[in-house]
């Protein structure tokens, strides 16, 4: 691993296989499919968003891509390899509701979890990795809070910690599930800056996000999803009035102003 903040294999983006590729992915909860025959590819070295209305299957897509949900059919490839075999190349920032906030764990210890895989079973996190942890904390501005208990933080601070944990993994691909939900505007802006910076360092980042305006302004690539793939490609081509109408249908309808609102305000 290089020591200059670059993730492994961060070379020219064009030569690399897609950071994440989904082929014919179908996932159902019960009888009804949440994702139906979804094809999508996220090129390496881009800041990509997964956009779609509520219930479109955005979070499920990430979870299925990581193998946390068993798919009915289809494949998920990370950097060209089956995701299950390539999980060491992925850092995941889950939605935060599954966690026990009262757990006796400090901010630093949470971020250290990002180094667990590198340490392996039964071994301690090596001393040298503490610097990586400190660096990750510094990048999200959480250094002064490193010894706080995780539950003593605000929503935005908790999200910063989880992103720091993903940073500490130093994986070339980062998947973030609704990282800005319940986060104040200032934190969102600074986290977006951070993501952009990571992208320019060569990492590939996929974010589930609901705010189309932000996606248009700050992201390179988008998957517009509503159970099936509506569009997938560079943001400007993907998020057009036509595709948005197809994805959000009822929400924007024929009203050009509502559509505009959906486009710019989110």
């Amino acid at each position: 691993m290089s020591g200059d903040g670059q993730p492994d294999g961060a070379t020219a983006a064009q030569d690399r296989p897609p950071a994440l590729e989904l082929r014919r992915l179908t996932v159902s909860y019960g009888a009804r499919p949440v994702l139906w025959d979804v094809d999508a590819a996220f090129p390496a070295g881009t800041l990509a968003a997964i956009v779609g209305p509520n219930g479109a299957g955005k979070s499920t897509l990430l979870r299925a891509a990581l193998g946390l949900v068993p798919p009915d059919a289809g494949q998920s490839l990370v950097e060209g390899r089956p995701a299950r075999a390539a999980l060491d190349r992925v850092a995941y920032v889950p939605q935060r509701d599954a966690v026990d906030w009262d757990f006796p764990i400090t901010v630093r210890e949470v971020v250290e979890m990002g180094r667990y895989r590198a340490a392996g079973w039964l071994r301690r996190v090596p001393r040298a990795d503490r610097e990586l942890v400190a660096e990750a904390l510094e990048r999200v501005g959480m250094t002064p809070f490193a010894d706080r208990q995780i539950g003593a933080l605000s929503g935005g601070q908790r999200q910063r910690v989880f992103i720091a944990r993903a940073l500490a993994q130093r994986s070339p691909v980062m998947l973030l599930d609704e990282p800005f939900a319940g986060v104040d505007a200032r934190t969102e802006a600074s986290l977006l800056d951070l993501l952009a910076q990571l992208r320019s360092e060569g990492r590939s980042i996929v974010v589930v996000h609901h705010d189309i305006a932000t996606v248009r302004a700050r992201f390179d690539w988008a998957l517009l999803l509503n159970v099936r793939t509506i569009a997938c490609g560079p943001v400007a081509e993907t998020l057009t009035a036509e595709t948005l109408r197809r994805a959000y249908g009822a929400a924007v309808g024929d009203d050009p102003e509502a559509l505009e609102e959906q486009l710019w305000a989110g």
Binding site: R32, W36, D37, V227, R228, G249, A250, A251, G253
Partner: peptide, 26 residues
């Protein structure tokens, strides 16, 4: 059936459903 879902995504919002029935994509 697949095309029907594509149509639904595009035009479904125009159709008022009588109750809480929801479209099954498949």
């Amino acid at each position: 059936r697949r095309e029907l879902w594509t149509l639904w995504l595009e035009h479904g919002w125009r159709i008022e459903l009588p109750d809480a029935r929801e479209p099954d994509p498949t």
